Amino acid sequence: MLFWLLYQKLFPYFRLFRIFRYVTFRCVFASLTALLIGLLIGPFVIDRLRQFQIGQYIREEGPQSHQKKGGTPTMGGVLICISILVPTLLWSDLSNPFVWLVFFSTLAFAAIGFADDYIKVVHKRNLGLTSRQKLAAQLGVSAIIASALLVLDWQGVYSTRLVVPFIKNFRPNLIIDTLLHTHFWPLAFLPFVLFVMFVITGASNAVNLTDGLDGLAIGCTIIAAGALTVLTYVSGHSVFSNYLELQRMPMVSELTIFCGAMVGASIGFLWYNAHPAEIFMGDVGSLMLGGAIATVAVVIKQELLLPFIGGVFIMEALSVMLQVGSYKLRNGKRIFRMAPIHHHFELLGWSESKVIARFWILALVFALFALTTLKLR
């Protein structure tokens, strides 16, 4: 909105407003706006959540040191959502379809998490939506996003070809061309749709599993969103994309503003979520952030870099999968003392702050490695 007002409407009369044409400048403003929104309305949100007795339920089978956290205000993801979407609306070019696609993804996954958290709060138990209900909703939203990307591919502003790290000349198409002109043409799009559904739903759940310690998930989100900000900018920049031999997508550069807003919003939330936390993000925050991160990665064709961009999230999800698989296949034997893996280190005697700090370091290493792959092609 401010971009439309200051640049598209007032720039012909005030040449100073030319600066608002630059994505980097608007990205900084979006990040600062998101940070200020988070810091300013954070206390109000926390007070309201306490007033309505929207507190966190701590499962009994979790670490005993976490029982004292019971009753801490949750559903703070609403604060993150507002802090991301408002600056995006203010500083982005709203004629860009990718902005609205990521906007929809953020809002839709936030709604799924909100429903899950709300049911938990109403029934005062650690069970909201059933696993099937939550998964069905996530897959449904992901399928809508995949369908929208297919439309954008048809319009020539997106590509369904996969970008493979380290191999610059190998870009397989996830659409089966040989089926397009047959009676089975709908099946031609199935690989792409399934792939997008897997990536976005998987990332959403991975962030959700990581959200178990004060500031852990949001700190890793800051790092992942920062890496995505760089990747989004270079993917839309003609000089950088050519130099790095990336597939240039000029229209995705506007998502740099969204990623910058995610960084600012996450920092603002960390102010209140740092150990000992005054507020938890809940599923409304974790599902939303995972869905948003994955959607941006899919749009800028960096899906295969996502395991490095969000390395800690993947590590946490894999630890749960390994633990469950071991328990079922090895007659109740476990690999870790408790999953997700951050609880395993807690039970080994690490303090919560030490686990958080070391996982942040891991997240930074993963993200830096993801950025180095830009030139290793």
Rank of each mutant, 00 (worst) to 15 (best):
M249Y: 04
V324Q: 04
Q323F: 01
G264A: 05
S351P: 05
M315D: 02
S286E: 03
M251A: 15
V355L: 12
M251P: 10
A277D: 02
G268I: 00
F269M: 09
M321G: 15
M251V: 12
P340E: 08
F269T: 14
V296Y: 10
G291P: 10
S241T: 02
D283P: 05
S238T: 02
V252G: 11
G325E: 05
L322C: 09
S286D: 04
S319W: 02
I335S: 10
W271A: 11
L322P: 04
E278V: 06
G264Y: 04
G236K: 11
G260I: 09
H343L: 06
Y243K: 02
A274E: 00
G282K: 12
V239T: 15
L348M: 10
E245K: 15
M262P: 06
A274K: 15
G282D: 04
H237V: 02
H344Y: 01
F336S: 05
L305F: 15
S351M: 04
W271G: 08
Y233H: 05
S241A: 12
T256S: 13
G325D: 04
A265F: 05
S238Y: 10
M249K: 13
L289A: 02
W360H: 04
W271D: 07
F345C: 11
V234R: 00
G291I: 00
L347A: 05
S326P: 02
S266G: 05
Y272K: 15
Y327K: 14
K333E: 12
M262I: 01
A339H: 13
W350T: 00
A297K: 01
S286F: 07
A292H: 05
N331I: 06
I293D: 00
R337M: 10
P307V: 01
V239G: 09
M262W: 06
Y327W: 12
G311W: 02
V296S: 08
Q302N: 09
S266N: 04
S241R: 08
L287N: 08
I300K: 06
Y233V: 08
I267W: 14
I300Q: 01
Y233W: 13
N331C: 03
F308G: 09
F345M: 06
F313M: 12
E245V: 07
G349Y: 09
H342Q: 13
M262D: 09
L362K: 00
K328R: 15
V299I: 15
